[in-house]
Design a protein around this nucleic acid. Structure first.
Length: 268
DNA sequence: AGATATTCCTGGAGGC
DNA sequence: TGCCTCCAGGAATATC
């Protein structure tokens, strides 16, 4: 599912098609995803030139020369296809460039979003305003400060986008495993020494996933249609009952209504 | 304030 | 074969 590495991979793929290109037309194939698409999306994008692409947390950003940024979130099932032969069920948004390229957003579950925000106002845009720091650039002391006084499980706190922005269920499980930290441990009780193992673990697992082109799981496809392969490298995620690789056996528990995978032998 | 539960939606998997 | 239930994912919202 799209977490930070998949969004990063998607943005890089879209950049190859969109960077510097003029948008010739867009097509809304339904009026809403998670929320309504902007009424004036078509007018504001048509004829605009793409000046840059970027990412904030799990959001992809497409800047235009009109001072607007198209902000997309892939939710749980969203993905872009490039130059598809045909349109499929759940293809909700189509954008064409003057160069004759096409990108199509498919999102069966519609937990994703598409917004058009004035680039200069992005920092004040409500969904961005509360976001914590990017995982890259986060250091152990900063994380310790953000966890201070919190009694909730570290697993849940790392999923909270206000504490760190961009982590999802998969990479939180993997990072905690790598750092040897039990997912139920109270966030505020973790020593600085242990956070100094956790932060690099987060960096490493994300960087490796980006390097691998994002994980596929069930329905992530990179923009050029190639499947990523990082999912083969999961140590614990979706591996209940299987060996963790260091002699332990992966266990599944539920936290906040969602599955956590960890190794009781390796994580304390 | 913090912690927890619920909601949105579809499709795939597994049970009978 | 079909019908049923359960589960996955992210984030906003509601409720304790």
């Amino acid at each position: 599912m799209p977490e930070l590495p998949e969004v990063e991979t998607t943005v890089r793929g879209l950049a190859r098609v969109l960077q510097g290109q003029r948008i010739s037309s867009v097509q809304k194939r339904r009026p809403d995803l998670r929320r309504a698409l902007p009424q004036d999306l078509g007018q504001r994008l048509t004829g605009a030139r793409v000046t840059g692409l970027g990412r904030r947390a799990k959001y992809g950003l497409v800047d235009t020369d009109r001072g607007d940024t198209l902000v997309f979130h892939l939710g749980m099932s969203g993905y872009w296809r490039v130059d598809p032969h045909e349109l499929l069920k759940h293809d909700h948004f189509v954008m064409d460039t003057e160069a004759g390229r096409r990108i199509v957003l498919n999102d069966a579950r519609r937990f994703g979003s598409l917004d058009l925000v004035e680039t200069a106002e992005l920092g004040d845009w409500p969904p961005f305003k509360a976001l914590g720091p990017e995982p890259f650039g986060l250091d152990a002391r900063e994380l310790q400060r953000r966890l201070a006084g919190r009694s909730a499980a570290i697993k849940l706190l790392l999923l909270d986008q206000r504490i760190v922005a961009g982590l999802g269920n998969i990479y939180v499980c993997e990072a905690l495993y790598r750092a040897g930290i039990h997912p139920r441990r109270a966030g505020g009780s973790i020593s600085l020494d242990r956070l100094k193992r956790l932060v690099p673990a987060i960096h490493d697992v994300l960087a490796e996933a980006i390097e691998a082109g994002g994980s596929t799981l069930k329905d992530f496809v990179s923009p050029d249609g190639e499947l990523g392969y990082f999912s083969k490298a999961f140590a614990v995620y979706d591996r209940e009952g299987q060996p963790c690789g260091r002699g332990g056996t992966v266990k599944r528990i539920v936290q906040g209504g969602r599955s956590t995978f960890y190794c009781p032998q390796c994580q304390h």
